[in-house]
Amino acid sequence: GNIFIKNLHPDIDNKALYDTFSVFGDILSSKIATDENGKSKGFGFVHFEEEGAAKEAIDALNGMLLNGQEIYVAP
């Protein structure tokens, strides 16, 4: 299952995104959108192997604080 994450703190990188979401299941890919200079655009995507893991991550993390910013997590 794919999920979309927005309002990410600029310091959150691909590894931090992966580490945050990997507790919910096996991740096939995770990516933070960046500009041409490699600076985070504040949103990203995680693709879980299983749909159930994606739903669990959405339920658990939507509205949670990550590096002091409330993140939005949705399908």
Results as ranks from 00 to 15, higher is better:
G1C: 04
G1N: 06
G1R: 03
G1D: 03
N2L: 00
N2V: 00
N2D: 02
I3C: 08
F4A: 01
F4G: 00
I5N: 02
K6T: 01
K6S: 03
K6E: 02
K6H: 03
N7D: 05
N7P: 07
N7T: 06
N7H: 11
N7F: 08
N7M: 07
L8F: 11
L8S: 02
L8M: 11
L8Y: 01
H9L: 14
H9A: 09
H9I: 13
D11R: 07
I12H: 03
N14F: 03
N14C: 06
N14S: 10
N14H: 10
N14A: 10
N14V: 08
N14L: 05
K15Y: 06
K15N: 05
K15E: 03
K15M: 06
K15P: 07
A16S: 15
L17C: 12
L17M: 12
Y18N: 14
Y18A: 10
D19C: 12
D19H: 12
T20H: 05
F21I: 11
F21W: 05
F21R: 02
F21G: 08
S22D: 08
S22C: 09
V23L: 14
F24C: 04
F24N: 02
F24T: 01
F24M: 14
G25H: 00
G25D: 02
D26Q: 15
D26L: 07
D26K: 10
I27T: 03
I27F: 01
L28E: 02
L28M: 12
L28C: 05
S29C: 04
S29A: 03
S30G: 08
S30V: 05
K31L: 06
I32V: 11
I32K: 04
A33P: 10
A33L: 02
A33G: 08
A33N: 07
A33E: 05
A33D: 04
T34C: 14
T34G: 11
D35L: 13
D35R: 10
D35H: 13
E36L: 10
E36I: 14
E36R: 15
N37Y: 10
N37H: 14
N37V: 13
G38E: 10
G38I: 13
K39M: 14
K39T: 11
K39S: 11
K39E: 11
S40F: 09
K41A: 05
K41I: 04
K41M: 06
F43R: 03
F43N: 01
G44T: 00
F45N: 03
F45L: 01
F45H: 06
F45W: 07
V46I: 08
V46S: 04
V46N: 01
V46T: 06
V46A: 10
H47S: 03
H47Q: 07
H47R: 02
H47K: 03
F48S: 00
F48P: 00
F48R: 00
E49G: 13
E49K: 14
E49D: 10
E50N: 12
E51Y: 06
E51I: 09
E51F: 04
E51P: 12
G52S: 11
G52C: 12
G52L: 09
A53N: 09
A53G: 12
A53I: 15
A53V: 14
A54N: 03
A54T: 06
K55R: 13
K55E: 13
K55A: 09
K55L: 12
K55P: 06
E56G: 09
E56L: 11
A57D: 01
A57L: 07
I58D: 03
I58M: 12
I58K: 13
D59N: 09
D59Q: 14
D59H: 10
A60C: 12
L61V: 14
L61I: 15
N62Y: 12
N62P: 04
N62I: 07
G63P: 02
G63L: 05
G63W: 04
M64L: 14
M64P: 03
M64S: 06
L65A: 15
L65I: 13
L65T: 15
L65F: 13
L66P: 05
L66A: 09
L66M: 13
L66S: 10
N67M: 06
N67S: 12
N67C: 14
N67T: 13
N67Y: 06
G68Y: 06
G68D: 13
G68E: 08
G68I: 04
Q69A: 15
E70Q: 12
E70L: 11
I71N: 02
I71F: 08
Y72L: 06
Y72Q: 06
Y72T: 05
V73H: 01
V73A: 15
A74S: 08
A74V: 09
P75H: 14
